[in-house]
């Protein structure tokens, strides 16, 4: 029991932080610009492939810097020449623009790197088990991911709340005209924020690429869960996203170890459903079996009960 508790908590935290790493850029863009970016996972994918390619040429560490910079630049260009023109039509066209962009990025990645997974490896410096608990190894690379996630959280939080730039950025979302009147260049701020958000996604891509599978369908597979993180945490709330990531990581991990089904619950009360009913499966599905789709249930419940999310300040 203790073993289960400790191992699951550790796995849950590690997974949660991975989620935060991937979702931080999304929540940044939403909090600043109010844009729900469907192409976020695509920028994450671009990051992974850029990371793969650059690390082939000059090694992993330069790739960790150059990849995100390039993707950030692409993000800024997309904002400047695409999103900005769509902005005046409202949020739905903005969202649909990113929707179309995701299609295009996926196809381009497929053209360049093919459709099969590429061989993107963990750098050798970090390719060793860091410690062992209950005979289970924890690789150093996972701890590295954890540290980067926390680092990004702290840095973003500090920049947004403690620095002058952060204040201007936040103000230009709520009072763009006022900020502009004060002589700040609001469109430039938006462009930088979108670029930074894309770069964050790319950092996640470069780091998660070797640990997961770097393939052209990685964006489509990952996209929805990032929305869950951001929305459950409260749209636009950085700390909310942080807490939600942890919560989802822990929920999913602990659920995997629960082999209880509805039938078991009802059996306690002496009721057993007939085996012939068409919905028989519904009774016998265990919590462990559906663990990875529990976050979506959480999403629906949170939005119904507290539409602003866990730590969101405004109603979505």
């Amino acid at each position: 029991m203790l073993e289960l508790l400790i191992v699951s908590t550790l796995n849950g935290v590690l997974f949660g932080m991975l989620l935060f790493l991937m979702a931080s850029g999304l929540t940044l863009i939403f909090s600043m610009m109010g844009v729900l970016n469907f192409a976020h996972a695509s920028f994450y994918m671009l990051g992974a492939f850029f990371g793969f390619q650059i690390s082939r040429w000059v090694g992993f560490w330069p790739a960790l810097v150059v990849g995100p910079v390039l993707v950030g630049a692409i993000g800024a260009v997309v904002e400047r020449f695409g999103l900005r023109n769509v902005h005046r039509h409202g949020h739905v066209p903005e969202l649909l623009f990113t929707f179309g962009l995701a299609f295009v990025i996926e196809e381009v990645v497929q053209m360049i790197w093919g459709k099969s997974p590429v061989d993107f490896r963990v750098p050798e410096v970090l390719d060793f088990p860091a410690f062992t608990i209950f005979a289970t190894n924890y690789p150093a690379y996972k701890l590295f991911m954890l540290l980067i996630s926390i680092g990004i959280f702290v840095a973003l939080f500090a920049v947004l709340t403690k620095t002058r730039i952060g204040l201007i950025v936040q103000a230009s979302l709520t009072h763009p005209n006022m900020v502009a009147h004060l002589g700040h260049n609001v469109p430039l701020v938006f462009m930088l924020v979108f670029g930074l958000g894309s770069a964050l996604a790319a950092i996640a891509g470069v780091i998660a690429g070797p640990a997961l599978v770097t393939q052209s369908n990685m964006a489509a597979l990952l996209g929805p869960i990032l929305f869950v993180v951001v929305v459950v945490g409260g749209l636009g709330s950085l700390s909310g996203a942080f807490v939600a990531s942890l919560l989802i990581g822990l929920l999913q991990t602990f659920a995997v170890s629960v082999n209880v089904s509805l039938a078991d619950v009802f059996a306690v009360f002496g009721f057993t459903p007939g085996p012939d009913s068409m919905l028989d499966d519904l009774w016998r599905v265990t919590v462990a079996q559906i663990a990875p789709i529990l976050p979506y249930l959480l999403l629906v419940l949170v939005l119904i009960l507290k539409p602003s999310g866990l730590m969101g300040t405004r109603e979505t």
């Binding site: 769509v86 066209p93 299609f103 295009v104």
Partner: peptide
């Protein structure tokens, strides 16, 4: 690569 054209067409429409 019809999906690429489809995506580009869609982006053009949105813009």
């Amino acid at each position: 690569i019809w999906q690429l054209y489809f995506g580009l067409l869609f982006i053009a429409m949105v813009m």
